[in-house]
Nucleic acid binder design. Sequence first.
DNA 1: AATGAATGAGCCTTCATTCAT
DNA 2: GATGAATGAAGGCTCATTCAT
Lengths: 212, 212, 212, 212
Amino acid sequence: MAKREDGRETRKRLLKAACEVFARKGFGNARIADICQSAGANVASVNYHFGDKANLYAEAWRHALEGLEELSVEDADCDSPEDSLRHFIRALLQHFSAKGAAAHFSRLYLMELVQPTGLIQDAWKEMIEPRRRRLHRIIRDVMGSGGDEHSVLFCELSIINQCRSMVTIQEKDLQYILGEPLSPRLIEKLARHIADFSLAGIQAVAKRRPKK
Amino acid sequence: MAKREDGRETRKRLLKAACEVFARKGFGNARIADICQSAGANVASVNYHFGDKANLYAEAWRHALEGLEELSVEDADCDSPEDSLRHFIRALLQHFSAKGAAAHFSRLYLMELVQPTGLIQDAWKEMIEPRRRRLHRIIRDVMGSGGDEHSVLFCELSIINQCRSMVTIQEKDLQYILGEPLSPRLIEKLARHIADFSLAGIQAVAKRRPKK
Amino acid sequence: MAKREDGRETRKRLLKAACEVFARKGFGNARIADICQSAGANVASVNYHFGDKANLYAEAWRHALEGLEELSVEDADCDSPEDSLRHFIRALLQHFSAKGAAAHFSRLYLMELVQPTGLIQDAWKEMIEPRRRRLHRIIRDVMGSGGDEHSVLFCELSIINQCRSMVTIQEKDLQYILGEPLSPRLIEKLARHIADFSLAGIQAVAKRRPKK
Amino acid sequence: MAKREDGRETRKRLLKAACEVFARKGFGNARIADICQSAGANVASVNYHFGDKANLYAEAWRHALEGLEELSVEDADCDSPEDSLRHFIRALLQHFSAKGAAAHFSRLYLMELVQPTGLIQDAWKEMIEPRRRRLHRIIRDVMGSGGDEHSVLFCELSIINQCRSMVTIQEKDLQYILGEPLSPRLIEKLARHIADFSLAGIQAVAKRRPKK
DNA sequence: AATGAATGAGCCTTCATTCAT
DNA sequence: GATGAATGAAGGCTCATTCAT
């Protein structure tokens, strides 16, 4: 309850709360009052620290993103492109299913995908593209010489969207479908499935090409 | 502008408009005023015809669903489970990418997935389950004896989520990624990709099981 | 369900329903829709038959009043002014506690007393005065020579207000207080009480005068 | 017009205005806008300070009640139960005819009696019961050994309802009937009348019992 | 730096009334 | 004579924002 704290402190708490609420509800359905309450701050504090709701949203994005960097998919020393893909998928899935900043970012991203607010235009592409490029490269490597550009793109979509299920569905619905709680073990299992499934998929698609 | 029409007419226009707006904005962000204006009706007409916004939403779902029936995934005479799967995927994709009622339904569905309103509980399961069960059966057939329950489930998710990309991403973004406009030909191509990709995936997953 | 009835028929049903609803809820809280539904008529029928809500209210008053005439306190052949008073009180109480038109009128009257609408100015005094004059005369007779004008007036208020309890309180609350359901026997008992109580009261007040 | 005041101030003004308006119009017919205008506040202030109209109503009751405490019927040192009754009646009548908070309470009470909202269930019994019990005891004392339970109840109703006339009728109508303005002297006179009238009534009723 | 108070714009809903048939 | 459809005005409530301290 210490008042006159650093000021940065409140700001941070607001950002954290904003990430959560925006991630859960989307921009339009999020209530500033909820965010402030969750941050233990006054309703006016958002406008004080961030000017308005739209700007808080943009800052929340940036905040979620920063928390993400550290988790960023690293080019662990993998022996083969196949291993790289497995690695990538597992990392992505862990991101998506993680609690905290990473999960928030994933949901924020999904929300923006589904209902673009147009408030984060700039951050958007900068954030996403690098990761996409990595996946792109990996897929290409897995394919070897067999894939044309379109096939690589399609495989990208296939993989990304398989992983995205983690964030699209509410956790409880996903649990309902899978019949068990969302444990790290299950994530691991799912990661392995997606990797197996996709590796076979990519190879099939790569092989098919020559015929055409 | 014919006034004092049948009443069914206005009701229909409202439903149509509601589908569009709810699909575009989601329940919370949709404005009754927008819907009514789009339907050329008075704001009070929603209350008159549907009681309230929530019920209009539920009816809009039902409406979108009816428009969908005709497109319904039929068990066309397929020689093999593999063919069935190809068929299923193509139909699903066409649904998702269709204009009109079908597209609205897909978006409504996605919205509900991402931000559940809890207003359509009943319609939800009725609509989704049968389709899921069909896919389930097909996958099991493709797998032959090799798949355990979890694997089937995972494959289901893999396939559904690949197809879902069509609705998740705004059309223009998808076009941007793919580099060409969303033509029937492209849909067809994408359907083939997902089918190839997934068939290989399923078989790989099925084969892997015994070993374990 | 016979349509194209007399037209008078619907009108009557509307009046009856209006009496009930206005009596129960008062003018402001009564809903035309409720009245129409209760009368099995269309919402528009009120405006068709009566022009508007205010006029329906006025007509409902008149209607309740007509139903009242027949029950009107008659100068039964009573031997004494005391008997007349007992008679009057019993009749009044029976009115108030009766179901149907009489009770409705009593409630309408009370409602107008508590929240004057100003819509029945004319009917008001005409209706009430005659009855008041009768009571006035009876009280004067009971008092004999002892009462001055003010005392008679006060006794009038005392008696009327005792009887009014029947309509002021919701039936269930009255039952709660009295501890038994509102039977004719209870009404009879209450009438006897009020008569006994009031006769003694009047006589006391009449006697007191001389002292002053 | 001092802005950004204490907040307690505005709250109080709102409560005061609410008492007035609710007392005059009843819950259903009272307009929040009226209350706010009368309090010199914004329409949204009701929501800010009280959540909603229903709660404002409940708080207004409480407020009116607090203003009442000071006038509360006290067991002044009375020599006899008869004196107690006189005392009680005079106090009650003064309440009912008082201006300000007390009068508002009386009207609020009447309104709730006539058109129960069900919003003040708790406050209701707490407030009314103690007063009723006092009257009950006094009547029983006046009756001596002669009264059965029912008779006491009936006498209670007789007395309460006589006093209630003060609030039931609009002041101007009462003046019209009585032929003179509602002065403290008139209240006093009326109190004496009701006391004389009722004491005689009670005694008559008490005496009658043994016979039966 | 921070906040309680206040506000106005906007939304959903209700309701008496009007219209066309 | 009667009614389903339609409407506008008004009410209560929500919410982001602004103000004064």
